[in-house]
Design a protein around this nucleic acid. Structure first.
Length: 371
DNA sequence: AAGCCGGGGTA
DNA sequence: TACCCAGGCTT
């Protein structure tokens, strides 16, 4: 047994593999070794739950069944397939990587660690996962599931994201990964973290590693890994304008870089604290050449990881058709088309207000526009 | 090393 | 409500 281990690391994989054979999950991307599909699933699953990914995965594969089809798609098509899944740089990187694979590798998928990590959007952990799951090579994974399992198994106290902790965790992950059946092991340890060794209330009595687990022995399974420091979550207020012209509404595409890159939204503006939202909406209407009054359709809240926004939706009229120029990133869409356009979540929530308004428009307060 | 980047499930 | 997730990229 290695000196710094309290148990033989070779004991772990056989137990996990036996457990996985009985309790492993059946997921859409399992049972295949197509590197493209494994890669797609791994990218979609970054910072995202399995249940959220499954419908996107199925839809994406119908549109882009292989790397050549993905490479041949446009950035707009790819972002539309990703709309609602979040972290849109993943979609951009996926697309860029597919084009690189086709252009430089003749369509051959990388099958070693450096080749995989060279792909945009593929880091050390994802490369290890693809190596193991697609090629059954010894690929080491340190994702959220594995990190939690290892923090408990080795009773790692303190911030698991610190550089020192990361070093230890990668070392342990490497030591536990077997040469034999890495494909099954990768999915087994992730399944353990996703089911029994869950963030809250780990089900230790059913765990195949219970007699090895230092965290359990010390009674720390409920408090490990150490919670992240709480961060303040700013609250932002925003007005969004549903500007109508002939039954259509103006939407714009956001720049491809940055927050919600490539997604569409209604014209909008942040409302400074202590100022009147209706005034901000009126100013926005005036800038766009709109005419007449504004009517508040409703308001919604939307939470991001690092801030929250309350969106107040207003409806206004564009007046003269020529008042608003059409450019590449703008279009006028009717209600049916709005349902198809990849709006980001916060503004997508505003579309139902239009349909609702038809039924009880008299309930909505009317606000006079500034002259 | 720290900050940025979404959305939904879950307790 | 608060936390977390099959992380990687940028600065």
């Amino acid at each position: 047994m290695p000196e710094n281990f309290l148990f033989d690391p070779a004991d772990v994989a056989p137990r996990l593999l036996a457990w996985y054979g009985l309790e492993g999950r059946d997921l859409p991307w399992r049972g295949c070794r197509d590197p493209y599909r494994i890669w797609l699933s791994e990218i979609m699953l970054q910072q995202t739950t399995v249940a959220a990914v499954i419908p996107y995965y199925e839809k994406f594969l119908l549109a882009c069944p292989d790397v050549a089809a993905l490479a041949a798609s446009s950035p707009e098509e790819v972002i539309a397939l990703w709309a609602g899944l979040g972290y849109y740089s993943r979609a951009r990187n996926l697309h860029a990587a597919a084009r690189r694979i086709v252009a430089e590798g003749g369509g051959a998928f990388p099958d070693d660690l450096p080749g995989l990590m060279a792909l945009p959007g593929v880091g050390r952990s994802t490369a290890g996962a693809i190596l193991a799951i697609a090629y059954d090579k010894k690929g080491v994974i340190l994702d959220g599931n594995v990190r939690r399992v290892l923090c408990r198994l080795f009773a790692l106290e303190g911030d698991p994201r610190s550089a020192a902790a990361e070093g230890k965790l990668w070392g342990w992950a490497e030591a536990l990964t077997p040469e034999d059946r890495p494909h099954d092991y990768a999915q087994a340890i992730m399944d353990l973290g996703a089911t029994l060794c869950a963030p809250k209330r780990p089900d230790c009595p059913r765990c195949p590693l219970i007699d090895l687990c230092r965290g359990r022995q010390l009674g720390l399974e409920m408090v490990l890994p150490a919670a992240r420091a709480k961060r303040s979550v700013p609250e932002i207020c925003q007005v969004a304008l549903l500007l109508e012209r002939d039954g259509c509404f103006l939407v714009r595409r956001r720049p491809f870089s940055g927050l919600l890159g490539g997604l569409w939204e209604f014209p909008c503006r942040e409302v400074a604290k202590g100022t009147e939202p209706a005034a901000a909406a009126s100013a926005l209407l005036a800038e766009l050449g709109g005419k007449g009054g504004l009517r508040e359709l409703g308001r919604t809240r939307h939470a991001y990881s690092h801030f929250r926004v309350e969106v107040l939706f207003y409806r206004g009229s564009a007046g003269e058709a020529a008042a608003v120029a059409e450019t590449a990133g703008e279009l006028w869409a009717n209600e049916r088309e709005l349902a198809e356009i990849p709006l980001h979540g916060a503004h997508k929530k505003g579309v139902p207000h239009l349909a609702r308004e038809r039924w009880n428009c008299h309930d909505a307060p009317s606000i006079k526009a500034k002259e």
